[in-house]
Design a protein around this nucleic acid. Structure first.
Lengths: 158, 158
DNA sequence: CCAATCAGGACTGCTTAAGTCCTGTTAGCG
DNA sequence: CGCTAACAGGACTTAAGCAGTCCTGATTGG
């Protein structure tokens, strides 16, 4: 499915949430605001803090705040921080030892341009872009992969 | 990791292999040539046949052959056929009912431009492109995600 | 008629991510 | 000075998805 991990999705949600206030916010507070389970929020925030996306304040009345503006954070960075390097197959990134079909694989290493293309596409979109899209447009998911199956009525929030 | 399923990787290998001969090729033969386990090759081929990428000939002396030229097959198509639609998160493609944080999620549906960007990138690369790259360039995997950690000595094939 | 081959599905084991919990450290406040 | 609120960091458990295998049936050439 070319699936992204949920943690990365959560990270984006949390970062956008943090951007909505200059004050420090606690992980329980963010959990309540986003609906994401508190331990999971804490886990994501710790990772984000370790990677320098957010700054933490320990002790009573502590919490987290953004360390960098949303506009300066590319999706690719968040994915790289949470999910690891962007690489579609295990063949790349030097871990070739585990590939049994290496000797005869006709496309080995050829995913590189594909990976590069995806990386570029993800580097060109910042979190602010996603947030702006959220404001300017309502919620429509048609014209994507599937021809708008629309199984369930989607509640549009303006 | 933004990982692609192995089956998709296999599908690409198998398709490229099929392109190297106009004759029908049996799944055991392809398995032997590619190093991929035979049942897995058969599984991939069945899917590819169902999606119209390859044509099958049943009975004795049967086998598979390409139904379309490599140049006309985009990576995105193969991924879509094997892995399902290209969508990074479960929020898209109409399956919104399962998202618990839907009501408060500030970026819901905002992955759409990201998905679209990736889809475009993958639609622009054909299997022939990957094959050509394989011919024109040797095997070097550096200058990718990681700064060439080179934990294990990678055998460079010139 | 027999053997080779594809078609299609069901089933199982494994890998990996998601989620939870525990312990330690830091900082404000009474 | 002690208590409490909050982050830091890791270990652990569970669950889901996928890879891989196998079985039965249908088709076709010799």
């Amino acid at each position: 499915m070319l699936r992204l991990s949920k943690l990365t999705d959560y990270a984006v949600v949390v970062l956008v949430r943090l951007s909505q206030s200059a004050e420090v916010q606690t992980s329980p507070g963010i959990a309540a605001a986003t609906g994401i389970p508190e331990p999971t929020v804490a886990k994501v925030l710790k990772t984000l803090a370790a990677r320098g996306f957010v700054a933490s304040q320990r002790g009573a009345h502590g919490g987290y705040r953004l360390a960098r503006p949303l506009a300066g954070i590319a999706i690719a960075e968040v994915i790289g921080a949470i999910d690891g390097p962007i690489a579609l197959t295990a063949c790349v990134d030097g871990a070739n030892a585990g590939c049994d079909v290496l000797q005869v694989c006709p496309v080995r290493g050829r995913w590189d341009p594909v990976n590069a293309a995806i990386r570029e596409a993800l580097a060109a979109i910042s979190l602010e872009d996603m947030q702006l899209a959220s404001v300017s447009r309502p919620f429509h998911i048609v014209s994507l992969a599937r021809p708008a199956a629309s199984t369930s009525p989607v509640p549009v929030v303006e």
